[in-house]
Write a protein that binds this DNA or RNA. Structure first.
Lengths: 205, 205
DNA sequence: CGCCGAGTTGAACTGAATCAAGAAACGTGG
DNA sequence: CCACGTTTCTTGATTCAGTTCAACTCGGCG
């Protein structure tokens, strides 16, 4: 859990293409073959074990990650408790921009909840690519926009739905998550205590 | 309030430059003179009265707005109550992207809480400019990123601070807002009832 | 004047937190 | 394969922040 993990030997490969990467991006932006090639040239594929910490508390996230398979969570500590801010499953992106943008630790930790295959690009490299490739800048804009919209709806849910409604929401929108993630983590994501979530579960069943 | 407003005659001018516009943008992105000129060429300045509705409930926001002076709020209806999602004061941007992106009404209304001077650009025009001007695409990315970070911190506040803490937060971060906006609207923004906010106020004083 | 919207105050109620104790599941080593 | 400790989940009793509903005050304004 949380702060404890073992850094296991990891395989690195630069061969295979992240086929789904371009698929999951294509609804937003059409990328030219050149752009794709440029992106690929600067992403490193890694297979990392469960519990691996991409960014520790107190560290600064210097990379953007595309999840080919697996699952991460981003959390911070609030009154001694780990609060899950976000999950990131296969075929989506994760990073913690705040730290990089302000160049100070933002108190977030990103770690793997499952063994995962991840494509990584340094933030500075991405910014270089932004400079040279309008298409990539656009890609960035779209990814962030999607993030923003998701966050907006999460905020309104949090403000005006009961714990039970939020749980049912999650249950229907991301059913697999509940099989993959422990109750305590789910509850901290929903903004309720573990006990309450357990009671909600009991009530529903 | 809310749904009721009077559409007063409005002045339109294309002359004056929104000096602060470029100032408030410059921390993010350096814009070339050409880019500035292009942006200006497609923004229309309007002086609009208090209560004016930029986007009605059930409508779709087709424009991006830069506030030179004044104040807007974006709200939606939840269980018959107006829930304030966001304020937008002078020298910042507002729009409701969801509706435009999905081409369906997103249930939000944007209206003026004060007489305001607003620079408006149609969304489709902005997208055209994105295509032709890498710098403007970057500007868009930065504005959205700033929005995202603000939203992130609001979400965590909402999740883990008491009503009183949130109020004090607002009090210190945007003291002027409390002079400019009625109690009911503030409370719906903070995610509490008007009565609770009134009690908090009494307690603090 | 009396009405009307905005804000305040009071009392009862409730969803969820907290504190505390068990029960189940899990993994690791003997 | 079982016994052990650890972590994860459940259940109960109590408490509390905030809601709801209702009445009341205050300051304009026609």
């Amino acid at each position: 859990m949380g702060g404890f993990f073992i850094l296991v030997t990891l395989r690195m490969e630069k061969t295979a293409k992240p086929i789904n990467f371009f698929k999951s991006v294509s609804p937003f932006v059409k990328l030219s073959p050149l752009t794709k090639q440029v992106l690929l040239a600067h992403m490193v594929k890694e297979s990392l074990p469960k519990g691996y910490v991409l960014v520790p508390i107190g560290g600064i996230c210097r990379n953007v990650h595309y999840m080919e398979t697996g699952l991460t969570r981003t959390f911070y500590i609030k009154d001694g408790k780990e609060i899950t801010e976000k999950f990131c499953a296969e075929n989506s992106f994760t990073c913690s921009m705040t730290g990089h943008l302000t160049n100070t630790p933002d108190g977030r930790q990103i770690e793997l909840l499952e063994p995962s295959v991840i494509w990584t690009m340094p933030y500075v490299k991405l910014e270089e690519l932004y400079d040279g490739h309008h298409e990539i800048e656009r890609l960035g804009r779209h990814i962030i926009t999607a993030d923003l919209l998701a966050l907006q709806s999460r905020l309104s849910d949090l403000q005006f739905k009961t714990a039970e409604e939020r749980y049912i929401n999650l249950l229907t929108s991301k059913p697999s998550l509940l099989q993959r993630v422990s109750l305590g983590i789910i509850s901290s994501y929903l903004g309720i205590t573990q006990e309450t979530l357990s009671r909600i579960r009991a009530k529903i069943a």
